[in-house]
Simulated assay, not measured.
Amino acid sequence: MKVNIDIDDKHEETTLTIQAKEWTEELEEIVKVVKKRRQQRLFGVELDQTILLDPNEVDFVYAEKRKIFATLKDRTIEIKMKLYEVEEILVPHDFTRFSKSVIGNVNRIERFELSFNGNLCVYFHSGNKEYITRKYVAAIKEKLMKGGQAYDR
């Protein structure tokens, strides 16, 4: 991908032009990020207290029994939002779908293990683990190869 930026006093407003051969998921993500006027915050609730969550510390977010939870290194915090709303906030922070009910932070992944059924077991630096269903495996591999991060220790 090639990026051109032209900064000049003659421009009255900021205009973004994307030239591409075809529409891709990558372009869709770029448009989502650009359309966000200001970064929304992610809040969790723990012991009747509202907590501001740092997306860089969240391993994954999941839905269970009609509630949404964020998993950090050593704790799980409830989020009072819908999973798709959380996903919109976290996409610019390199989160992606792992399954119908899980969104994971690709920057926190340490390693993968292939399961017998075609799913991937993902291990995070924190020691937490989660599964990526077959439907999402190819997209995550592509994202990691195109610039998402996965670290090996």
Rank of each mutant, 00 (worst) to 15 (best):
E85V: 10
D9C: 00
N4H: 00
L120I: 03
N56D: 10
R75W: 04
D74V: 00
K135W: 10
Q19G: 00
L42Y: 12
Q49M: 04
Q19N: 03
I140K: 02
N4C: 00
K129W: 05
R66H: 10
E46K: 11
K67C: 04
T24P: 07
E46R: 15
G147E: 07
M1E: 02
T96Q: 06
L72Q: 07
M145I: 02
V58Q: 04
Q49K: 12
P55I: 07
N56K: 09
D9K: 03
G104A: 11
D94E: 13
K146N: 15
V33A: 08
A63I: 07
D152N: 05
E85I: 00
D8L: 02
R66Y: 13
K135V: 12
D6Y: 08
F60M: 01
L52I: 15
C121L: 03
D8M: 09
F98Y: 12
F43N: 08
I109A: 02
I30V: 12
I103D: 02
E29W: 12
Y123P: 00
T15G: 02
A70D: 05
S126A: 04
E28P: 05
I79L: 06
E85A: 03
L47A: 13
E85P: 07
Q40I: 06
V86F: 09
E87F: 05
C121E: 05
I5P: 00
I5K: 01
P55Y: 06
I79T: 04
D48G: 13
I140L: 08
V31K: 08
V86T: 10
F116L: 07
I77F: 07
L114S: 06
Y131L: 12
Y123C: 01
R38C: 02
P55C: 08
V58L: 04
D48N: 15
R108W: 00
L83H: 15
G104R: 00
N4S: 06
M81A: 04
K82L: 14
T71H: 06
E142L: 14
E64V: 07
E78T: 14
F43H: 09
F95M: 11
D74L: 00
E13T: 04
V61N: 03
I132V: 13
A70V: 11
I103P: 09
D74Y: 10
N119G: 05
E130C: 11
M1C: 01
